[in-house]
């Protein structure tokens, strides 16, 4: 990812990098992936593939980041006075850390349901290209759409990155079962983390409670910074951070939406302008 950034910033490659169609991101295969060979008889049956998928959560460093994020979300839910059930249901059904945080922070600071829903809807658009780029890896000629509903629900940034890393190592006819296992494994771990965070925030001394709440902005800032692959992403991140405090002075109720759409659009403008 770092290389991509340098490439985009570098003068010589800049134009090419936009003209050629590349996958959104192609993380290099690293870490100890211990899957059987593609033609191994161990892949017989969907149940085996499902279990291999579930077991693969232990091979990713992103699991740690995800866990920390959801501990933070659990703590945030507690401190914004939501119930534990609400927090767990949001992890299971929303299954998108940023959206959950936007929802918690917006509702916790007194925004209306419509204002919160708007901010969440706009932030969730990014799931669309993720689904679009992952599904072709799972599809077989005879695959039905309904078989892809569950894998689509599991897609969020972690699974999206992991699919690029792991799918080439899984026989195509077993990929849906594998992704369902991997997705369920990630969801179950995140539910555990949400539960732990909620209870830690309730029971720890204030200093450590504060430390757990700080996990959310820290983990998100850094993982977003790591996912920045183009200049537009970097500008959007920096400008988004800087613009929010300014916009919030006007107290519009949709501060997040205004600062986000303007910063993002300016970032896109910079990207267009640099390309010339």
């Amino acid at each position: 990812m770092h290389k991509d950034l340098v490439k985009v910033n570098g003068d010589r490659d800049r134009q090419d990098s936009h003209r050629t169609v590349r996958p959104l991101k192609t993380p290099k295969a690293k870490g100890n992936v211990s899957l059987p060979a593609l033609d191994s008889p161990k892949w017989q049956g969907s149940a085996a593939a499902f279990l291999y998928g579930m077991r693969s959560i232990t091979t990713t460093i992103l699991m740690l980041v995800l866990f920390a994020t959801y501990v933070g979300i659990g703590a945030l839910a507690h401190d914004t006075h939501f119930s534990l059930f609400w927090a767990l249901a949001s992890t299971l059904f929303v299954w998108a850390g940023p959206a959950q945080i936007i929802l918690l922070v917006a509702l916790g600071s007194g925004a209306t349901v419509i204002q919160a829903a708007l901010a969440v809807t706009v932030s969730a658009i990014r799931l669309f290209p993720m689904v679009v780029s992952v599904l072709p890896m799972l599809r077989m000629p005879d695959t039905k759409k309904r078989q892809l509903i569950l894998p689509s629900h599991f897609i969020a940034v972690t699974l999206w990155v992991e699919c690029f890393r792991l799918m080439p190592l899984v026989p195509r006819e077993r990929r849906i079962a594998f992704v369902n296992g991997l997705g369920l494994g990630l969801v179950l771990s995140s539910l555990t983390a949400t539960f732990i965070g909620y209870h830690l925030a309730a029971n720890l001394p204030p200093l450590f409670g504060a430390a757990i709440l700080l996990l959310t902005p820290l983990a998100f800032l850094l993982s977003t910074a790591r996912n920045c692959k183009q200049l537009a992403d970097v500008v959007a991140l920096v400008l988004g951070l800087a613009l929010f405090p300014v916009v919030s002075l006007f107290n519009t109720g949709v501060d997040i939406l205004i600062s986000g759409v303007s910063a993002g659009t300016i970032a896109y403008g910079v990207h267009r302008w640099r390309r010339r």
């Binding site: 703590a75 945030l76 507690h78 401190d79 914004t80 940023p98 945080i101 936007i102 922070v105 916790g108 600071s109 901010a119 706009v122 932030s123 969730a124 658009i125 990014r126 669309f128 290209p129 925030a201 204030p206 200093l207 409670g209 504060a210 709440l213 700080l214 959310t216 902005p217 998100f220 800032l221 977003t224 920045c228 183009q230 537009a232 992403d233 500008v235 959007a236 991140l237 920096v238 400008l239 988004g240 951070l241 800087a242 613009l243 929010f244 405090p245 919030s248 501060d255 997040i256 939406l257 600062s259 986000g260 759409v261 303007s262 910063a263 993002g264 659009t265 970032a267 896109y268 990207h271």
Partner: peptide
């Protein structure tokens, strides 16, 4: 590309909001 930039900026705004107007014990 625009979609990703806006989504990133919204998330950045939320990060800023947590730091500027912190929830719960983080306010201490």
């Amino acid at each position: 590309i625009w979609v990703r930039a806006v989504a990133t900026a919204i998330l950045a705004g939320v990060i800023a909001q947590i730091l500027v107007v912190p929830p719960g014990t983080l306010a201490s």
